[in-house]
């Protein structure tokens, strides 16, 4: 009985139908929060007394970095579930999370670079935080490459999942890098425990953006998993019926 939900989660068809029902609500709330957070952060929040307006990049840089890291855990866990229970849908989640994670890591590095120029006077420096984020990007790209490197999909999925699991050691290093090697990157201004060092007028829009990015991540992951499910299940009956029934392909 308790295992029933688990098996249903493993069913691509069930996933496809459920995610189709969730997506409109997820997309709407993600778009709303991102819009509010962007206007609030860029135009309504006060300028930083030391950095001026360049600090406004924080409203993109911090949420993108959060999701680049949280997405790595999600990808590694999905890979582990695939390895242990041989669940096809878990490997699909891993593969899709790898692309989104790589894209968000790139965003984190890019926004960091254009923030660094007016603040530190340089786009790039081999600081511990920045270097470990670059390693994260290569881990994501490595997972994508391994997934595609083998003729047999099963071998590629397993190899990619193993690399993903080994790479998780990098994530706590990234978190701790600003405390262990205090070089150039500033320490975290948002903390789960204890006072944040940001004033509330700057903190609230940042929290809105972080939640908005989490919802966006869910939307992006579901959309790409749905496409991957169709690609992998193209010869199964329910996908054929779906294609035949759905003239505009807009519905589920």
């Amino acid at each position: 009985m308790a295992w029933q939900w688990f098996h249903r989660w493993g069913s691509p068809r069930w996933f496809y139908q459920r995610s189709g029902a969730w997506l409109p609500w997820l997309s709407l709330s993600a778009a709303l929060l991102l819009l509010v957070g962007t206007v609030w952060g860029l135009a309504l929040a006060p300028a930083d007394f030391k950095q001026g307006n360049s600090y406004r990049i924080i409203y993109l840089h911090v949420p993108a970095s959060f999701l680049a890291l949280a997405g790595y855990y999600l990808m590694a866990i999905a890979g582990a579930v695939g390895l242990i229970w041989k669940m096809k849908l878990a490997y699909i989640a891993m593969r899709c999370a790898a692309t989104i994670g790589a894209a968000l890591t790139f965003v984190a590095l890019f926004t960091g670079a254009v923030w660094g120029k007016p603040t530190w006077g340089t786009y790039w420096v081999w600081d511990a935080r920045i270097t470990s984020m670059l390693v994260l990007l290569f881990l994501y790209l490595g997972v994508i490459a391994l997934y595609q490197a083998f003729d047999r999909q099963e071998v590629g999925s397993k190899a990619a999942a193993l690399l993903g699991l080994v790479g998780t050691v990098n994530v706590p290093i990234i978190y701790k890098s600003v405390d262990w090697w205090y070089t150039l990157h500033q320490p975290a201004s948002l903390k789960l425990t204890g006072e944040s060092t940001l004033h509330s007028s700057m903190l609230y829009p940042l929290l809105v953006m972080v939640v908005g990015f989490y919802l966006f991540y869910a939307v992006a992951l579901l959309l790409s998993m749905r496409a991957e499910v169709i690609a992998r299940e193209s010869s199964s009956g329910w996908v054929k019926a779906l294609a035949a029934a759905d003239d505009d392909t807009e519905r589920n």
Partner: peptide
């Protein structure tokens, strides 16, 4: 700097 970050994101 700010708008380049916004555009790429």
């Amino acid at each position: 700097y700010v708008w380049a970050a916004v555009a790429i994101t």
